[in-house]
């Protein structure tokens, strides 16, 4: 099954790419732009058919390698 991991910077950690992009959007004329936050998406395919087991495995992967707990939070979505 496929599992999607959405990685986002932790609150309070400055996001220079996001703020530069927000500025660029405003200068393009998108005046309503507040903040922009840039994350990452990772898709992992696992062989198990058990959604709970797939989630558990990917959670472990996030803790051990896919994300850095000092900088990032993650959300897991089991696709199918």
């Amino acid at each position: 099954m496929k599992v999607r991991v959405h990685v986002q910077r932790r609150p309070g950690i400055a996001d220079p790419e996001g703020s530069t992009t927000a500025q660029a959007l405003r200068s393009l004329g998108f005046e309503d732009v507040g903040s922009v936050s840039i994350g990452r998406e990772i898709e992992v395919e696992v062989t198990t058919d058990d959604a709970g087991e797939a989630r558990k495995q990917v959670e472990d992967m996030c803790r051990q390698l896919l994300t850095n707990p000092v900088l990032e939070d993650f959300e897991i979505e089991v696709l199918a």
């Binding site: 950690i13 400055a14 220079p16 790419e17 530069t20 850095n68 000092v70 900088l71």
Partner: peptide, 8 residues
């Protein structure tokens, strides 16, 4: 941890 510089 280390991440991208403030001024990109």
């Amino acid at each position: 941890a280390l991440m991208a510089n403030r001024d990109t």
